[in-house]
Amino acid sequence: MSPAELFAQPFMQRALIAALLTGLAAPAIGTFLVQRRLALMGDGIGHVAVTGVALGLATGASPLWMAVLVAVVGAVLIEVIRERGQTNGDVALALLFYGGLAGGIFISGLSGASGAALNRYLFGSLTTISPQDVLVTMVLAIAVVGLCVGLAPQLFAVAQDQEFARVAGLRVRFYNVLVAVLAAVSVTVAMRTVGLLLVSALMVVPVATSQQLTRSFRTTLAAAMGLGVLASVGGLVVATLASYRATVAPGPTIVLLALGCYVIAWPIGGWLRHRARLREPFAEGQPDLHERTGEHPHDHGPGCGHLAVPHDDHVDYVHDGHRHAAHGAHYDEH
């Protein structure tokens, strides 16, 4: 079967749709989680959702809906623990995380469900998605993206400064719970794509990548969603093409591709920040002493090779660790 025929198959098209929507939704909510320094919350919800999937498999109910239900309950519980308990918040979260994972494996063992069935949810199984699952994924993903983008000003304000948001009259608790619920929903949206154990990567890694290069929240959000789509659709395509030669799972391919983008962006971001720091204007105020430079071999100006940095109403030229400022026919040390 040629690649063109392969991508024309219905199951492949369903997989592409699911990958595209997951790539959009997971980084959208992930940006708000990273902003609130809750990058691992997605991971925690993913672990809790394992119990939901196992319950669904054991009872014959839809694993997707059971996962949504249990993940939402878990996310709200995490949010309540975070808000109430200041002392041992992260320990309480850890208890919930591992309780969820252990509970899921325990229940699936009891019910005698095959390990392969649970594995599809743990590590993703894009190509076995049923038409109903695609429909549910579409609805949920569009809801997540719509709320994240539509309520972005409110969610941004609450995540940036809770106290200011409260005095501005925003219902902070409502928005906190909303973020938790949206995170839970996008975890379950992404579980068929990258799997519950890797879901957090798609929420966090594109955000970490885009913030290497951005200075504002909105561009970070947009770039993270773009990178998420690139990684998830790209990962699926790469995995499919590679499957002619070897067994390549789409989930890990997607995550590795996202990480690859980060590895490329990181040094560029470091170089940009270094450059910005060098060009940062010098603090205002003139030196008290009028100190002339010695004999100066050339005139400073555009293209002289020395970095020009703004200082008050003029520019200083950075010259071998000195700052030279033009003063009449000579240069002063600033």
């Binding site: 902003q35 609130r36 320094r37 309520l151 000003p153 941004f156 995540a159 400064d161 501005a168 913030q211």
Partner: peptide
């Protein structure tokens, strides 16, 4: 500062939320 970069304009714009309606 928070985990994601925010521009000066964006932070100041948050102050406008007291007068903005949803969506």
């Amino acid at each position: 500062t928070s985990g994601v970069p925010a521009s000066v304009w964006e932070v100041v714009a948050a102050g406008r939320l007291t007068r903005r309606r949803l969506l």
